[in-house]
Design a protein around this nucleic acid. Structure first.
Length: 403
RNA sequence: GGGGAGAUGGCAGAGUGGUCAAUUGCACCAGACUGUAAAUCUGGCGGCGGAAGCCUACGGUGGUUCAAAUCCAUCUCUCCCCA
């Protein structure tokens, strides 16, 4: 009669790769009543559509949401279009552009498209928080804010830090956690997921639900993934992210550039390898096997998830050609040159391989430009395109010159 | 409402009349090396130019000066303290 796995089996899966569950007892209770009443749990994940470029760090929590889908529960993705329209000023002197409704909608869709690599979109319930938040009037807002105190707001880590280091905090930023909590009330969420940096916001949801006489949601946080630099958390703005829409070659290369210590965490958080396989990788590393081989496997896994096994294979052999053997890739974009003896500097500039001639000069001076494998040293060098020529700028940029 | 401090290149943060296209660190790019787009070392890191040089730039605008990121006025924004 039951379509749900046993509670302890569910718990095992849920615990995998999570940072914290607040609280496990409540979760078990909720799972129990879900089975008893044959009523799936409402599992909520909010997303910020203002930056729709997802990277594999985002997929950690999406993967967790997928687990709940697998267990038969209702996954709800809340597109934070309302909050995105207001424009989060944190970060300062950026004057972040406020999104229009259309943009927020469009970005939301992009988000869903990318998330579909990890989630079961057909079973996903998607809502926009503008549906209820924009309907609130000032009276509602005041009543909402009265549920929380300034002192409690300042408990939040980043608010506290900003306050102490004299970085401005706008009043409306205090409304963000409340708005997000309102989403939980509106959805009567049983569980809310988020990265560890979201813990505060998620907890506010619990408090608010209690005030609204709801059973408080269980909060589950997932670890933040470190970026490819191994120093900061993964983020597009730190330029240390592996984007879900990255080309296979980029994905593969970026993965190989991670520090060795990140191999296991990456496997754990961003791939679907089994616990046994993870164990295996761990012991191979301990036995002193060349970490490169594990890293290559990791890179293949990742490219396979977002592209295909074939793309992974191609990316790998391409990588070997270029970086291991110093050879050219098999496929190179063509660029048509109009007149035949043409200055190398002009070509690399016109073709967009460098952003300015100044930069092109620097590269030539430093020996970073090659034609058919021959280093160019003279800034005024011209090239005769009597046959296709391979132009290489730096390590990774190639162009086949034709006429 | 009163008083004080500040706004500098992607970020952090020096510089307080010429020697400043602006010290330094991070990030970034290239070269060498390497299992790697890791680490390390070397070079570079506004634009045009072969170069000399020129142009644009230190929150906005206007001014003083032979000369301003630096001085003055004003505007915008931010932080702190007192009420």
């Amino acid at each position: 009669m039951t379509k749900y796995p046993k509670i302890n089996e569910q718990m095992d899966l849920i615990r995998q790769g999570t940072d914290e569950i607040i609280s496990e007892e409540q979760l078990e209770q909720k799972l129990g009543s879900a089975i008893k009443n044959n009523k799936p749990l409402i599992v909520k994940l909010g997303c910020d559509p203002s930056r729709p470029d997802l990277h594999i760090g985002h997929t950690v929590v999406l993967r967790k949401l997928h687990h709940f889908q697998d267990l038969g529960h209702t996954a709800v993705l809340v597109i934070g279009d309302f909050t995105a329209m207001i424009g989060d000023p944190s970060g300062r002197n950026k004057t972040r552009p406020q999104l229009t409704i259309e943009e927020a909608q469009e970005y939301g869709q992009t988000y869903i498209d990318q998330a579909s690599a990890v989630l079961d979109v057909d079973k996903l319930k998607i809502v926009h928080n503008s549906e209820w938040l924009s309907a609130m009037n000032f009276n509602d807002v005041i009543r909402l804010t009265s549920h929380y105190t300034v002192a409690r707001m300042l408990e939040r880590d980043d608010f506290e830090k900003r306050y102490k280091s004299e970085i401005p905090i706008s009043l409306h930023e205090f409304l963000y956690p409340l708005a997000q909590a309102m989403d939980s009330v509106e959805l009567v969420a049983d569980v809310e997921l988020g990265g560890t940096d979201q813990k505060f916001n998620l907890l506010v949801g619990r408090d608010l639900q209690r005030d609204y006489d709801q059973d408080p949601q269980v909060v589950i946080t997932t670890p933040l993934m470190e970026g490819t630099d191994g120093v900061k958390k993964m983020s597009k703005s730190y330029d240390n992210a592996i984007g879900l829409t990255d080309e296979p070659g980029d994905m593969y290369g970026k993965t190989l550039s991670i520090p060795d210590e990140l191999i296991v965490p990456y496997f754990e958080l961003s791939t679907d390898v089994s616990a046994e396989e993870l164990q295996n990788i761990n012991s191979r590393l301990k036995d002193g096997e060349n970490p490169r081989d594990m890293k290559r496997q990791l890179a293949r896994e990742i490219v396979t998830i977002y592209h295909s096994p074939e793309a992974a294979k191609a990316a790998e052999s391409n990588f070997d050609r270029i970086f291991v053997e110093g050879d050219e890739p098999e496929e190179i974009d063509e660029y048509i040159v109009e007149k035949s003896p043409v200055a190398v500097l002009n070509v690399i500039h016109d073709a967009g391989l460098v952003s300015s001639k100044r930069e092109g000069r620097r590269l030539i001076e430093q020996g970073g430009v090659k034609i058919d494998g021959e280093k160019i040293s003279d800034i005024n060098s011209e090239i005769v395109v009597d046959k296709p020529r391979i132009l290489r700028v730096g390590k990774r940029k190639f162009l086949k010159l034709v006429n």
